[in-house]
């Protein structure tokens, strides 16, 4: 009861209020309240995740597990960022002379520095690395072996060229009245017609899937989010 039925009832009530508020304007206030609670709980979830990360890394350090030094680096960078962010270190004072009124992301603050010079470069470089791996995977996987694979390969080739300067230069000899057959023209056709149709069908499919999954959660058919252990 406490571990399964009440959680399901809470999920069903919260979701039903959100849905009901869409159709019943007078329930809008309840939707706002639940939305606010949801945002607060999402913030608590970040706290839970952060504390969990710290505990895991502390455990790794105390047990001297392989790679504990990197766990120490993770923990140190976590604590430093947390400290300067929560205490607004380096945030300029506002008109009342207090730094607590200023934004924690203010330009020049320690938290801004960590975001600008540690978080941003590492995240964007890791995503940039994927350029090499995507290209490498494509080189190994793309083969002209059947109609479907050929369409995929040809489309990628045309769109890549069509959105760059090289594509326009390569087909610059084609007269203006046949511009639809240049790389940029073909790219426009692919993106505007075929890609739009495919994306629409995918989005309709995803929407139906999300709606079905949501209904299964709200009706209690799917309770996998509650886990199976006794905790």
């Amino acid at each position: 009861m406490l571990r399964n039925t009440i959680p399901w009832l809470i999920a069903a009530c919260a979701g039903s209020v959100i849905i009901a508020a869409y159709f019943v304007p007078s329930a809008q206030g309840w939707q706002d309240t639940i939305g606010q609670w949801f945002e607060v709980l999402a913030s608590f979830a970040f706290v839970l995740g952060g504390v969990n990360l710290a505990m895991q890394n502390l455990q790794k350090i105390s047990a001297r597990e392989p790679g504990w030094g990197y766990a120490a680096v993770t923990l140190m960078s976590f604590l430093v960022t947390l400290g300067v962010g929560l205490f607004k270190v380096g945030v300029p004072a506002d008109s009342s002379g207090s730094r607590w009124g200023g934004s924690y992301q203010a330009e020049g603050s320690a938290f801004w520095w960590l975001y600008e010079y540690a978080y941003n470069p590492t995240i964007s470089t890791i995503f940039a690395l994927l350029a090499f791996y995507v290209a490498s995977a494509a080189f190994r996987a793309f083969r002209w072996k059947n109609t479907e694979a050929t369409l995929l390969l040809a489309t990628a080739f045309i769109v890549l060229l069509g959105r760059t300067y090289a594509g326009a230069v390569l087909t610059s000899a084609i007269p203006e009245e046949y511009s639809a057959f240049t790389f940029p023209g073909l790219t426009t056709l692919i993106m505007g017609v075929v890609n739009t149709a495919g994306q629409r069908a995918i989005m309709i499919g995803i929407a139906l899937g999300v709606a079905a999954t949501s209904l299964k959660v709200l009706l209690g058919i799917n309770r996998s989010y509650l886990g199976s252990g006794d905790g």
Binding site: S43, F44, V47, L53, Y70, F78, Y104, Y115, A118, Y119
Partner: peptide, 24 residues
């Protein structure tokens, strides 16, 4: 691995701080 460890620590704390000041 060092850079990766820094990224994990900073990003976890970043979202925690953002959740605190913008949410809580």
């Amino acid at each position: 691995r060092f850079a990766e460890a820094v990224m994990v620590g900073v990003s976890a704390a970043y979202f925690m701080v953002a959740g605190f000041w913008d949410g809580l």
